[in-house]
């Protein structure tokens, strides 16, 4: 079980940022190929996003898996909604759906 304070911290981060990526490493230096892929896609779309390095915080690393009942990292959230991990984000990007979802949720996208 995750400590409720960790769940609250995660909920706070997700609520406070329109687009937030829980990843391994930082956008400038991802520590995992799956995280790197999502960073590249968000950069391609010119979407401003907040990132959380789960390698720097063990409680978040474990807590985020319980938060969305999703066992892997990265995890992308838009306006509080869990969008998916690397494969889902890539499929949505390739199908043009990611920009649509961002636009529908009122997130400014630099590139279409």
């Amino acid at each position: 079980m995750m400590a409720s304070s960790t769940a609250e911290r995660i909920a706070g981060i997700v609520a406070a940022n329109d687009v937030v990526l829980f990843m391994k490493g930082i956008p400038a230096a991802p520590q995992c190929g799956f995280s790197a892929t999502v960073v590249q896609i968000l950069s391609r779309l010119e979407v401003p996003f907040e990132s959380v390095d789960v390698l720097a915080d063990f409680e978040i690393r474990e807590g985020i898996k319980a938060f969305s009942s999703w066992p892997t990292i990265p995890q992308l959230y838009v306006k509080g909604e869990f969008i998916g991990g690397c494969d889902i984000v890539r499929e949505m990007f390739q199908a043009g759906e990611l920009s649509t979802v961002l636009a529908e949720k009122g997130v400014a996208v630099g590139a279409l």
Partner: peptide
Amino acid sequence: SRVECHRLVNALLAQEI
């Protein structure tokens, strides 16, 4: 949805995870 599909696969792999 994609998330639901992935959840089905993840659930089958819960023990391995």
